[in-house]
Design a protein around this nucleic acid. Structure first.
Lengths: 343, 343
DNA sequence: ATGAAAGCGCTAACAC
DNA sequence: GTGTTAGCGCTTTCAT
């Protein structure tokens, strides 16, 4: 009952270990009869290849690394599940790391992954410019970014069109009659932050509205920072009549701030957030959101990555998935119809 | 610039590979001078041990497996972070798996982990009785459960006192004047479900209130099921005047249901939930909750597990961490003071 | 198409 | 205290 090795299988099937190995890795190179015998022996013995030995020999593991900036945010974990499902179907495991938007942590995990000879990495980088994925590329380990992109490295990525999504959200607010639209941005240096900010600006410009820096406040993509930013923005006179928030957690904080100030949505202020909020107390709040296909983002990222892992050499791929502006009560001041596609 | 191996280090430091290995694994067995030279060589060359080779040799990885029943629930991911932080400090990586409360998935991951010769596993089992951790124990791989426990296996665990927590929450509702207290339970077969249900019953009994089966509804630990269960329970006549909900996501759903029915909290119904809700839109809803020390649960579980991994042979350890009933607006019908410890 | 043999990088006996 | 040696389980030339 000790470990069953490839030699045991070979002996049972009365073939060499090499043949067993071939059956496992390149079934076509073995005659049907032998293949059959080997498979039976494997089943009979309950043989499972030792992944350490395999990795040692091939210099590659069957593990994918996933680095997200906040594991406690369902937005990211939903993407991770997409990665996980695809990976598992292909016989890969997933190793998850959390960076808390901390560049040093990200770097450390990248190094760990490289040292572990991980097959490939999917990540949502904590910075669009200060990245250290070169520790991967220098070892030939492929990487794919999801949700965010890297400006300083040429890497596959799967994102939504953040600029356009923010622009449409802004336009929607303007259509609803808003004229002073505040924007709670993400931390500077992250692609989604700058792109969504750019989209917000574009939306204002297109409508001939002034771009007022005082209407923008940086948040940290977390509940508290959204709360603080909203309080800051809403203290202004004249008060904003619309607000766009760059991620889900900050939207939660912003709603809290509105409650603090006893402001009614959408009467006093029309609100639009990013990302699904169905895990939050929102059925009644009915917040209008830019919904991203999170699970599918993960799926596509994993597919891209596995392609690279398996040696695909095509030029850098950039997948842009559609986001949808789902209009709900929080921004509805005029009679409007349901969801409208973005990008 | 290919991979730096232990032989390279040995040559540079002018010692044998065995000495380098000793410096790495058992520094005291090497004279200070040699140790120094080896360390310098390691730094100079940027040597990182090949974990596959090491695992192949030692028949053990430096990886911990973590199996949770819902990765998108911040309650679990917060615990995972506790595990992660402890693991990393000890040079272990973490492999995360998600089961969706699906026993088959759990079993599959357990098998994968066993095959990967993972060092140890922390899990929140999807069933208190139907478990397959014997695939671990039969290979000498230690396991620790967190949040939940296993009735049919003798395993280390770290939990709160769920029975007592639910009992105190129930007593609190009774103190606030509730007489018909509904309970939204978790899925049957999970220890937290049955223990919290037992606590709810105990609370009622202690106050001389009748235990009415019609006031209990099973939910699936998710938002929708909480919503459905609440609608079911609130359709009764006479309507419940209090409600206890067995986890965070279901509480979110229950709040939605209350809104659906235009019921006010706490006037029409006093509400108490389990687990932190600060990531949800609750600053204003101000839901009274039984708060668990999630991060610390993860920390303690990891410490326990690492102890076992390192050969600790003590009898089964059961760590019970304190939970706190944090009274907020949703259940406050009488003037009451702040938080009170539970268990 | 199949087998024999070498070796991936490391650790653990065993000698000295 | 240190070096030598063997071998973990697998894949991959290289013969045949």
């Amino acid at each position: 009952m000790g470990t069953v090795t490839i030699t045991d299988v070979a002996r049972t099937a009365d073939v060499s270990a090499a043949t067993v190995s071939r059956v496992l890795n390149n079934p076509d190179g073995v005659s049907p009869e032998l293949r059959q015998r080997v498979i039976e022996a494997i089943d009979a013995l309950g043989y499972r290849p030792n992944s350490s030995a395999r990795s040692l020999r091939t210099r590659a593991t069957r593990v994918l690394g996933v680095i997200v900036s906040d594991v406690t945010n369902p937005f990211f974990t939903s993407m991770v599940r997409g990665v996980e499902d695809v990976a598992q179907k292909s016989g890969y495991s997933v190793m998850l790391a959390n960076t808390d938007e901390d560049l040093a942590k990200e770097q450390r995990y990248l190094q760990v992954f490289a040292a572990e000879q991980i097959a490939g990495v999917v990540l949502s980088p904590a910075s669009a410019t200060d990245t250290h994925i070169d520790v991967l590329s220098s070892r030939g380990i492929p990487a794919v970014t999801f949700d965010r992109r890297l400006r300083t490295a040429d890497v596959d990525r799967v994102t939504i069109n953040n600029r356009r999504a923010a622009e449409q959200a802004t336009e929607h607010l303007i259509e609803q009659g808003c004229r002073r639209i505040a924007f709670i941005s993400g931390p500077p240096g992250i692609s989604t932050s700058s792109e969504r900010l750019a989209g917000y600006h574009a939306g204002l410009r297109r409508a001939g509205l002034p771009v007022e820096p005082g209407l923008v406040s940086d948040g940290g993509f977390r509940v508290v920072s959204g709360h603080e930013a909203a309080l800051r923005l809403l203290a202004q006179d004249p008060r904003p009549d619309g607000m766009l928030v760059a991620n889900n957690l900050m939207t939660v904080g912003a709603v809290d701030a509105l409650d603090d100030l006893a402001l009614r949505v959408p009467a006093d202020l029309a609100l639009v957030g990013f990302d699904d909020l169905s895990w939050a107390l929102n059925a009644r709040s009915r917040i209008t959101t830019v919904d991203q296909p999170t699970y599918e983002i993960g799926v596509r990222a994993a597919e891209l990555l596995l392609g690279r892992v398996q040696g695909e050499r095509s030029p850098t791929r950039r997948i842009t998935l559609p986001a949808t502006l789902t209009v709900r009560d929080s921004s509805r001041r005029l009679p409007v119809s349901g969801g409208q596609p973005v990008s």
